[in-house]
């Protein structure tokens, strides 16, 4: 890891002025749990860390006329402890619980939870985000792709989006708040995560001189039953194999409308709109949840070694739906 400069500005404007026009110029530094490891491994380089944790405005969890706004520097532990969040959006603490490590809960921030870089082992070992060989062929496609994408993988990107908050925000119709030299803007979570199409593209709709200042969930999502389920490789610290987040607008026992997003199956959180549409007018039970799971994995394009993830994604959707209506504990397995 090369030496770098360090600054701890107290306002977002100061922080933005300290960023550069290239990704290698400066890095936004929150909890650092991902960034520091990337720097130590020389996977990423930076000339300057801009610590955003001293910016008071980024530490708030606010209820603004029903919409929930979470500052980028809020730690995951603080988010898990927020009773308002737990009551209305249990899928958020459930997804946080999946991180497993209290040390990461204490250190990591909400901004980092969505901006962390992919875990693809080709990327992490210095072969680049797209992991292409000299002839432009995908190393992932030819190699060990057991943890890679089963959706959205027809282009050069085969990695999976690592964030478990990503699919939760898609299901809850969340927005990402960003600030840059031209002022603040916000973007639907669904548009924030993008699939790189060529070398040099990033996986987030963010410029090097912009900062994620927070995320928000609209008031309309507050009444929705929401649930999270992830299939884990082990009980200790690790990223999920597949996951699913759902939000259901209920009319009595009947689903009026639904949103489903699968996680860890594609270069972005992956919406399952057809499955969500199919659920309209249904009640959630073992049978309908399983059928929604079947619909969600329609069109999957597994690579040579990850067909098993199709079944795991199907089960994740089913169990997230059952979790949303409080039936998971009584449900039979798979």
């Amino acid at each position: 890891m090369d030496a770098f400069e360090y600054a701890s500005p107290s306002t977002v404007k100061e922080a933005i002025a300290l960023l550069g026009s290239d990704w290698e110029d400066a890095s936004v530094f929150g909890g650092g749990t991902d960034l520091i490891s990337l720097l130590k491994d020389d996977v990423e380089e930076t000339k300057r860390l801009v610590n955003i944790k001293r910016i008071g405005a980024l530490h708030a969890i606010q209820n603004d006329h029903g919409s929930l706004r979470i500052g980028a520097a809020v730690t995951i532990e603080q988010l898990m402890s927020a009773s308002d969040v737990r009551r209305d959006f249990p899928s958020i603490p459930d997804a946080a619980e999946g991180i497993r490590s209290p040390q990461l809960h204490n250190m990591s921030t909400v901004g980092g939870w969505i901006c962390q870089r992919p875990r693809c082992w080709y990327y992490r070992n210095g072969f680049g985000l797209l992991a292409l060989d000299a002839s432009g062929k995908s190393l992932v496609e030819q190699g060990d792709n057991r943890y890679h994408a089963i959706f959205g993988n027809s282009g050069p990107a085969k990695f999976i989006s690592p964030s478990s908050l990503g699919p939760v925000l898609l299901a809850l119709d969340g927005r990402i708040h960003i600030e840059g030299p031209n002022g603040p803007r916000d973007i639907a979570a669904r548009e924030f995560f993008v699939t790189p199409q060529k070398q040099g593209d990033r996986e987030l709709a963010l410029a090097p001189n912009e900062i994620v200042t927070g995320v928000s969930i609209p008031a309309a999502s507050r009444g929705m039953r929401n649930g999270w389920y992830e299939v884990r490789p082990k009980e200790g610290l690790d990223w999920p194999l597949t996951s699913a987040a759902v939000a259901l607008k209920m009319n009595g026992a009947t689903v009026e409308s639904a949103r489903i997003a699968m996680g860890h199956v594609a270069p972005t959180p992956w919406p399952a709109d057809d499955a969500a549409k199919w659920l309209e007018g249904k009640t959630i039970n073992e049978d309908t949840a399983a059928k929604a799971g079947d619909a969600a994995v329609q069109g999957a394009t597994p690579l040579s070694r990850n067909a098993y993830k199709v079944q795991l994604a199907r089960v994740a959707v089913k169990r997230a739906l059952l979790a949303a209506v409080g039936q998971l504990a009584t449900a039979a397995s798979a």
């Binding site: 400069e5 360090y6 500005p9 107290s10 306002t11 404007k13 002025a17 300290l18 000339k47």
Partner: peptide, 21 residues
């Protein structure tokens, strides 16, 4: 380390860029 230009504005200067030494 090749130094990155530091912002010239007073506000950014107050933010205090430290290091890399």
């Amino acid at each position: 380390v090749e130094a990155l230009p530091r912002p010239q504005t007073g506000a950014a200067g107050a933010a205090g860029v430290l290091g890399p030494g």
